[in-house]
Amino acid sequence: MKIPTGCAFTHIIRGDGKSITYQNAGVDCGFVGALNSGFCNWRIDFTYADTNNRTYRTSRGRTHTECKIDPMRNNAPQKLPHYGKACAHLYVNGVRRVSQCHHITK
């Protein structure tokens, strides 16, 4: 499943090497996308995987029961033990709708 036309799922990471100083993920809707009823029973999770694609950490967001056109979540700074990737996932009614990942390399 995807997000509605006119919307984009964004995932922003700032930091250096295995140190993440800022992380945010959310949905931005404009024009036609802003007319939809929003996302109900949503949550955003952050996951971290090593270079063998093994997930070693998950930061599960809380489920929001209200409907929101622009769900968003910040995550705490992270010191990662491994290079690999950091991902953000949007869940709606317990079903993953979309993901975006960044590769964390030297």
Score class of each variant (00 low, 15 high):
residue 84 G to S: 10
residue 79 K to M: 10
residue 93 N to H: 08
residue 85 K to Q: 13
residue 101 C to G: 03
residue 99 S to N: 01
residue 77 P to C: 05
residue 74 N to G: 09
residue 14 R to Y: 04
residue 73 R to W: 00
residue 30 G to H: 11
residue 58 T to V: 15
residue 47 T to M: 05
residue 20 I to H: 03
residue 57 R to G: 01
residue 47 T to K: 13
residue 33 G to C: 08
residue 90 L to R: 03
residue 68 K to S: 13
residue 54 R to Q: 12
residue 34 A to S: 11
residue 10 T to R: 14
residue 81 P to I: 11
residue 80 L to C: 05
residue 101 C to Y: 00
residue 81 P to N: 12
residue 3 I to F: 04
residue 20 I to E: 06
residue 66 E to K: 09
residue 95 V to E: 06
residue 56 Y to N: 03
residue 64 H to Y: 09
residue 46 F to R: 15
residue 17 G to A: 13
residue 36 N to E: 13
residue 30 G to Y: 10
residue 14 R to P: 00
residue 3 I to S: 06
residue 34 A to Y: 03
residue 27 V to L: 11
residue 29 C to D: 02
residue 42 W to H: 14
residue 13 I to A: 14
residue 1 M to H: 06
residue 10 T to E: 12
residue 11 H to P: 03
residue 42 W to P: 12
residue 17 G to C: 14
residue 61 G to Y: 02
residue 85 K to A: 07
residue 66 E to Y: 12
residue 96 R to C: 13
residue 34 A to I: 00
residue 8 A to N: 11
residue 73 R to Q: 08
residue 31 F to V: 03
residue 99 S to P: 02
residue 1 M to L: 13
residue 44 I to P: 05
residue 104 I to H: 05
residue 62 R to S: 15
residue 3 I to D: 04
residue 34 A to H: 05
residue 60 R to H: 10
residue 18 K to C: 05
residue 99 S to H: 07
residue 1 M to T: 01
residue 106 K to I: 01
residue 58 T to H: 09
residue 53 N to F: 01
residue 66 E to T: 13
residue 53 N to E: 01
residue 43 R to Q: 08
residue 61 G to V: 04
residue 51 T to W: 00
residue 77 P to M: 02
residue 44 I to Y: 00
residue 59 S to R: 15
residue 73 R to E: 12
residue 84 G to H: 08
residue 32 V to H: 09
residue 74 N to C: 06
residue 79 K to L: 07
residue 41 N to T: 07
residue 101 C to W: 03
residue 91 Y to H: 02
residue 95 V to S: 04
residue 84 G to C: 09
residue 55 T to R: 12
residue 83 Y to I: 02
residue 66 E to I: 07
residue 34 A to M: 02
residue 34 A to Q: 01
residue 91 Y to W: 04
residue 48 Y to R: 01
residue 1 M to V: 10
residue 11 H to E: 05
residue 43 R to P: 11
residue 28 D to K: 14
residue 27 V to M: 00
residue 78 Q to W: 09
residue 91 Y to P: 13
residue 30 G to W: 12
residue 41 N to G: 10
residue 46 F to L: 14
residue 36 N to A: 03
residue 70 D to K: 15
residue 2 K to Q: 12
residue 44 I to V: 05
residue 57 R to C: 08
residue 11 H to N: 15
residue 41 N to F: 01
residue 14 R to D: 13
